[in-house]
Write a protein that binds this DNA or RNA. Structure first.
Lengths: 187, 187
DNA sequence: TCGAAAACGGAACTTGAACTCCGGTTCCGC
DNA sequence: GCGGAACCGGAGTTCAAGTTCCGTTTTCGA
């Protein structure tokens, strides 16, 4: 029974500005990470800080909005993976695809590995993602291609670690991912 | 030809306070992480902030001192590993042992995965660590127990990721490490 | 023992970034 | 096209954390 969207339609200028802010925030956080300044985002959106704060109670709320969208995309990818046949390839494809999305967004990397508390804004998306990932894992284990002791919770743990290495330019996170994938494969 | 230690012997009270500060900083950073406050460390050391700043130009310098000590311990462990015979067990022991040390120190975890720039204070220790790790890797590869494409740079990358997951209490980093180890083993 | 140099303590200063406030502007139903 | 409600902008406020400054205390060689 939670209210997810405001009932009252926003005035034209308000809706326009809200979109601009979200778009600007997406770009700025993606490039500079989560400690980009609120003032910078407002400027990038062509809007005053006051306007930004009328649409989002605080910086965290803005970050949360973007994070939820990312998790939604992750869950969509998981469903796409389930629609594929090969138990191993579909699983590996999901990790590679979602990792690549993280690689393009510094803010997302930081949110994933330094601030798990912030994930709570996207509970429904997370549950869907977890459910689909669980199905993928089970399918892989039944086919004998995934290690038997793998559990769903391992995936966010490993991805957190992976995103941490992405923030260091001189590391090749693709290598990290491939090592993890080898570690997840059944022997 | 860099000066590593000050020539002039410190006054008795100064030396005593310096030790107290280092000891307090070790404890506070280990428990609270690198954004523990300078004032808290001074208080824990039973010393004024001014005293802390006479011994260390800034907070980073204090962190650097502690970090260098940790890297020294890591390198010592690497030499101990080289003294062992079993190529795989000695390698795995090193990762497990150094990981366990990280697990006891939140500040160290954060330094390792969010601030690689800070490592530069410990170049000599890092080079020694890297050299010994390289020997361990070569030995493991020649014995056919380590994957052929493994390079020294992969180790800090993987450890960075591992320390990131340690900061989340609900993750079991031991599982993460064992998955990585399986990924590093030759097939 | 004694005095100058070295060290101390912690109140005050500085900084930087999140957030507020209010006079001006824009929208939209009538 | 008008009035007032909704919205805007950005200068100014607040707050937390690092760093400095200087009057007081401690050390130690002569």
């Amino acid at each position: 029974m939670t209210v997810t969207e405001p009932q009252k339609p926003l005035r034209a200028d308000a809706r326009r500005n809200r979109e601009r802010i979200i778009e600007a925030a997406r770009k700025v956080f993606a490039k500079q990470g989560t400690d980009a300044q609120v003032d910078d985002i407002a400027r990038a959106a062509g809007v005053g800080v006051g306007t930004l704060y009328r649409h989002f109670p605080d910086k965290r709320a803005l970050l949360g909005e973007l994070l939820a969208a990312k998790f939604r995309a992750f869950a969509d990818n998981a469903e796409r993976a389930l629609a594929e046949d090969d138990p191993w390839e579909s699983f590996a494809w999901l990790l590679r695809t979602n990792a690549a999305a993280c690689a393009r967004d510094v803010g997302l990397q930081q949110a994933l590995h330094r601030d798990p508390a912030a994930w709570s804004v996207a509970i429904p998306e997370l549950m869907r993602l977890q459910d689909r990932a669980g199905q993928l894992i089970r399918r892989g284990q039944e086919a004998g291609v995934l290690r038997d002791d793998l559990v769903v919770e391992d995936i966010p743990m490993l991805m957190s670690g992976l995103t941490a290495t992405m923030t260091v330019p001189q590391y090749d996170w693709h290598r990290h991912l491939e090592i993890i994938l080898d570690g997840l494969r059944a022997r």
